[in-house]
Amino acid sequence: MSKRIHIVKLCVGIESYEDLEQRLTMRGGQTSGHVTRMRPKQEEALLNGGSLYWVIKGDIQARQEIKALEEVIGEDGIKRCRIVLAKPLIRTQNAARRAFQGWRYLKPEDAPADMPKGRKNEEELPPELAQSLADLGLF
């Protein structure tokens, strides 16, 4: 069985999940895409059910399934990679991520779970439980 891997990317200029969803809706069509300078080396694993996880305001909040990787040439003549992404956008449980440049691979076991359909956010933990988890380094 082939392995699977994901990509995590900062969603610069987007304020919320709803903001990203609205921008994707305005573009129309069944797919969207993101152009990046570096082509992922683990193409086979990405195309085996991988997703691009979007970091919005310091948290992974959404993902899109990766459909294809295409070579594109920019106006400057430099080769780039277009990551073709499926629609719709899928809301995930929030997972904090520090800022970084470019994109990073994300192992399936480290990827946040999808939110159940119809849920827009996670329920707040009771303050005592949140503090206990933070003390243990788990929250």
Rank of each mutant, 00 (worst) to 15 (best):
L129Y: 12
C11E: 05
Y17G: 01
N121E: 15
D76S: 07
E70S: 05
G137F: 12
D59I: 09
K117P: 10
G137L: 14
M26S: 14
G137C: 09
L136T: 09
D110W: 13
G33Y: 08
Y17D: 05
I7N: 02
E18Q: 15
R98G: 14
T31L: 09
A68S: 06
K79E: 14
W103G: 06
K3D: 09
M115W: 02
Q93K: 14
D59S: 14
L52E: 08
N94W: 09
I78E: 14
E70D: 14
R82S: 01
M38Q: 14
E109T: 14
K120W: 00
K41W: 08
P40H: 12
L89I: 02
G50R: 05
H34P: 06
R39L: 12
G77S: 06
R98W: 11
E44N: 08
L129K: 15
V84M: 01
E75R: 08
Q131S: 15
V35Y: 02
D135H: 06
E123I: 08
Q101S: 13
N121F: 13
Y53G: 01
Q101R: 14
R80N: 06
L52R: 03
F139W: 14
G50C: 12
M115F: 08
R23W: 00
E18G: 10
A62N: 02
K107H: 14
I66H: 00
K3Y: 11
I90A: 04
R91S: 10
E15C: 07
I90E: 14
V12M: 09
S51V: 04
K79G: 04
L125H: 04
R80G: 01
G28N: 03
I56T: 00
I73N: 03
A113N: 08
K117R: 10
H6A: 03
P126Q: 07
A111N: 05
D110E: 15
K107C: 10
G33F: 05
E122I: 11
A134S: 15
P108N: 12
A96M: 11
R4P: 01
R23S: 00
F139K: 07
R37N: 03
N94H: 11
G74V: 05
I90Q: 14
K120S: 03
R98Q: 15
T92H: 10
K3I: 03
Y17F: 15
M1I: 12
P112N: 09
L136K: 15
G49W: 11
V84L: 00
P88N: 05
I60N: 01
G77L: 04
S132W: 07
S32N: 06
N121I: 08
G137H: 10
E65D: 13
E122M: 01
S2E: 02
E21T: 05
Y17N: 04
E71V: 12
T36K: 07
N48L: 10
R39N: 13
N94L: 13
E15L: 09
A95R: 15
T92V: 12
E75W: 00
H34M: 03
I90D: 04
Y17V: 07
L69D: 07
A68K: 10
G74K: 04
A45Y: 11
R39I: 13
E124W: 11
A86E: 07
M115Y: 09
V84C: 00
P127N: 12
N48S: 15
R104N: 01
W103E: 04
D59H: 13
E122K: 08
I14K: 04
